[in-house]
Design a protein around this nucleic acid. Structure first.
Lengths: 156, 156
DNA sequence: CGTGGACTTGGAATAATTCTAATTCGCTAT
DNA sequence: ATAGCGAATTAGAATTATTCCAAGTCCACG
């Protein structure tokens, strides 16, 4: 739950920092991403945004998403083949892609692991970002509590 | 350099294990991937394969690549947006994507790091595979030896 | 208030991949 | 050997995701 909630001012500021303007469209697109953090595709964002702003075009949704990614308000994630998905969670995290349901979960990344991973790079490699993607199946504990044995604490 | 060289028999066996046949097309596609491990796209594989087998079709290249991925002879990698790339290196490794040149390098993953990474998964998440992708810029030591100081050993 | 640059829009264009339907191939069992 | 059968190949059409383009808007600034 860190850095997930950008204030409207911080939002406008980050756009300005990268030489961009704030616009109603960008606010709505960002708002949609924040409202339900389920890693929607551009198309999905489009249909949700249209409910609040019926005149918006798909091209604009792509533009807005691109702008938000550029100024680091949003992360883009790609699972194999499929369309790009968008994620407003800025804290360091990996993604878990449930192959059965298609759902995507954020996995919190402790600081230590991130530096461990970066340490595998030989000299001469300068990484600006790392992305970690798990693939498999997940029992979503949020909607499906573990029977009998409560409070399944995250391993480690 | 481990598990990179599949013998023709092992090759056929892995196909058979997943209920598939060996075919000349699959051999040639695999051969092309082995010959130059530069993570080509399906299109690139297609043009290389055509030199040895001019009658092959693009659809077949896609089929073959898919078959090889399914029976775990080849890994598919996706960098944001761009086309899928293919990699016959089976040993556990991450990918480093040089944003300037578009080149992709395999980064060897020590066993320890892999388990460290897997340990971040909370209970209920069962990962069948992990993928780690670095993005940044690389000075390719292979083609550009470090002046003066030879044998730059990989850090760690 | 007029100019310029960034932004939006709808539609056309492109790129990558998948689908389809018609062969062809190669075992397996007669 | 050979008929039969499922898997594989092929060419081209179709689909999907995304980008491009040209025209029109909207501000911010002088």
């Amino acid at each position: 739950m860190a850095a997930i909630t950008e204030t409207p001012e911080a939002f406008a500021q980050k756009l300005a920092d990268s030489g961009r303007r704030n616009t109603p469209q960008r606010e709505v697109v960002y708002g949609v991403l924040m409202k339900r953090q389920d890693h929607p595709t551009a198309d999905e964002v489009f249909v949700r945004v249209k409910q609040e702003m019926p005149t918006i075009s798909l091209a604009t949704v792509y533009n807005c998403l691109e702008a938000l990614v550029q100024c680091k308000l949003v992360r883009a994630v790609n699972f194999e083949r499929g369309p790009t998905r968008y994620c407003p969670n800025l804290s360091p995290h990996a993604h878990f892609h449930d192959e059965a349901t298609g759902a995507t979960y954020d996995i919190d990344l402790p600081e230590g692991v991130l530096s461990q991973v970066n340490a595998v790079l030989p000299a001469g490699y300068d990484a600006k970002s790392v992305e970690i993607i798990f693939r498999g199946s997940a029992k979503d504990l949020r909607s499906e509590p573990v029977a009998g044995r409560s409070s399944a604490a995250p391993k480690r």
